[in-house]
Nucleic acid binder design. Structure first.
Lengths: 346, 346
DNA sequence: GTTAGCACTCTATATCGACGAGTGCTAATT
DNA sequence: AATTAGCACTCGTCGATATAGAGTGCTAAC
């Protein structure tokens, strides 16, 4: 699959991609031959470029213009040529100070991370909060609303608060709900949601449950409270920065981009995918199949605490993104957030 | 201040505004004279238009183009000429069915309202959730995090959940926090936040408090929990629809608009202002002083339940908005939401 | 008071040519 | 055999120019 290029071709591809990342404009043979001292004439460079074009790594917008890298070209660059340097200690130090996490709710932390990611990269920051199902049970409360509707408030180990309205037997009193809460808090403390579900299922099947009305109701209630997925929380920051990029300069492209950001569905799908793997991942718009993010690239990394609450954060920018700068930022930020989440556990 | 126009001038202004609302293009004398049967020649219409221009109600983009209404012209139209018809019962019925509020958390309701407002109007929907301070106390919980940090979860009468991290004496145990919660829930139930604050202040000043360590800590804790303002919650839906409007067709305008929507600060300021008055209010971009929403108009109304939790919702669109269509939608939606909030109280 | 007529203004659109950047090919060079 | 200089060719950009059309303001006639 991955074609092998000789060194000269690699160097030239590298140079073209780097130039294009800066200028956003087609790169000509003359510029390459002059700026980088390969000691090659433009004509020789042109020959190589023609080869690269044939391989599908470059293309030219029209007959007589320079070349721009294709999606495949960028992929090759990222996989083979990109050198991601580690941040220096002082850079890490500085980066840590960009984030102010003191006395913040989970929501605020997620939002702040998005904002800072966007600010540092000058692209759009994305954060997906840890999924409900990946969290560890800490506390649950039930509050009676009207007509047999109950407000459930769930708090995870890390202080993630989620709430949900559920239907319940309208005969349940405030007192009942309190007892149910106490019972569950004692029973379920420290279990992962997955374990909680298993435990609940097991207990519901035991026969003797049917003799204890309250216990049965407790189990039913917590089942509907914890069974269904709670909607994913996605934070998007700095969407307007994307509009400054030349690749989205036309009104139609802008509108499409903002629509995509607004609906969040496609973004969630992408972030979901990256959650399966570890470390930094890069998606290139054109290759990412049915997702309609043409011209965009996504750099993501997952964060998690020791108990396994997993979230994803990243930066979305034009394919022509400054990967060597953004990748370490995303990487280190993910580590930073993981550490902060662990700090929440006393 | 408000100038008085004779009937003919009014009719012509009315016609120009209505035409402009539809076409978004300068309106010429010929079009007015033909489409509306005033039995006036274009020349006569031109004379009137010249007068209206002198009064500052119209302007022409350049020497030889039709006229467009100025901000002042729109204001006159809204104040004097706009006829807002009430919705017919079947329209109300239909509108009610657009909203699906079943088993929704407060957050979801707010979001849904924004979405539907945007969908119905084809402009951008805004909803500001009831402010923390305007709510009525229902329940409070404290959860111990690390290093003397405590997660406070507050639930209002209407099921609005807000949480916040506060610093606290690190010697407080989980048991203490539970007792403090119980104590507060008993003492404060049913009071408005304002009353709660007063009560807390009063009790803190009583001398004998100092002999009861736990009570003192309870008061201190709830003071810092309930004293400061919690961040306002603003929901923006359908921002991309604004980008389809011809007044925001250039990339620069698009970017500015999205920036304004993204920062939310200016929008909050505007919505705040409208919260002081009752009923539907209309702000016109150019007049709304220092807020940078040129070319935009805002139609708002407040909603509230019987216990006074007040929020604001509305639609933001180009000044050239279809007021006669959108105003009743905003108005009725606010009533609808108020009713839904009251339903939450059993 | 109203309107027909007309000169005038300004925008939008299309057309044209010059310019420049860049290519691909070929033949000469190393 | 690889490299490169030279050259014809292509194509997009920019500015100038012309044209059509919409709309106005003014004046004189109704």
């Amino acid at each position: 699959m991955a074609e092998v290029l000789n060194e000269r071709s690699q160097n030239i591809l590298d140079a073209i991609v780097k130039d294009y990342i800066i200028s956003a404009e087609p790169v000509g043979s003359r510029a390459i031959s002059r700026k980088h001292n390969f000691n090659l004439s433009p004509a020789s460079v042109r020959n190589v470029m023609a080869d690269l074009e044939e391989m599908g790594l470059l293309c030219s917008p029209h007959t007589s213009s320079g070349r721009i890298p294709t999606g495949k070209g960028f992929k090759y660059y990222i996989d083979t040529l990109l050198e991601v340097r580690d941040l220096k200690p002082e850079e890490k130090e500085q980066l840590s100070h960009s984030y102010r996490f003191q006395n913040m709710r989970m929501e605020d932390i997620m939002q702040e991370v998005g904002r800072v990611l966007s600010g540092l990269s000058q692209y759009t920051g994305l954060v997906m909060a840890p999924k409900f199902i990946s969290t560890v049970f800490r506390q649950i409360e039930f509050i009676r609303l009207s007509h047999g509707r109950v407000l459930m408030i769930y708090v995870s180990e890390t202080g993630l608060v989620q709430n949900k309205v559920i239907e319940a037997d309208s005969s349940l009193t405030t007192r009942d709900l309190e007892q149910i809460g106490n019972y569950l808090n004692e029973e379920l403390n420290g279990l992962s949601i997955q374990e909680v579900r298993n435990k609940l299922k097991r207990e519901l099947q035991e026969d003797r449950v049917h003799y204890d009305r309250l216990k049965k109701q407790a189990l039913n209630l917590s089942c509907s409270a914890l069974q269904d997925e709670v909607e994913d929380q996605l934070y998007v920051a700095g969407a307007s920065l994307m509009l400054g990029q030349p690749e989205f300069a036309t009104p139609e492209q802008m509108q499409r981009l903002i629509e995509t950001f607004e609906s969040k569905k496609q973004l969630l799908e992408l972030l979901d995918r990256s959650q399966s793997a570890q470390g930094v991942q890069i998606f290139i718009g054109s290759e990412s199949s049915h997702v309609d993010l043409e011209g965009c690239s996504l750099i993501t990394s997952t964060f998690s605490n020791q108990k396994g609450a997993i979230g994803t954060l990243g930066v979305i920018g034009p394919v022509r993104m400054n990967y060597s700068q953004v990748v370490p930022i995303v990487d280190f930020t993910a580590q930073l957030v993981s550490r902060v989440l662990d700090r929440e556990l006393e």
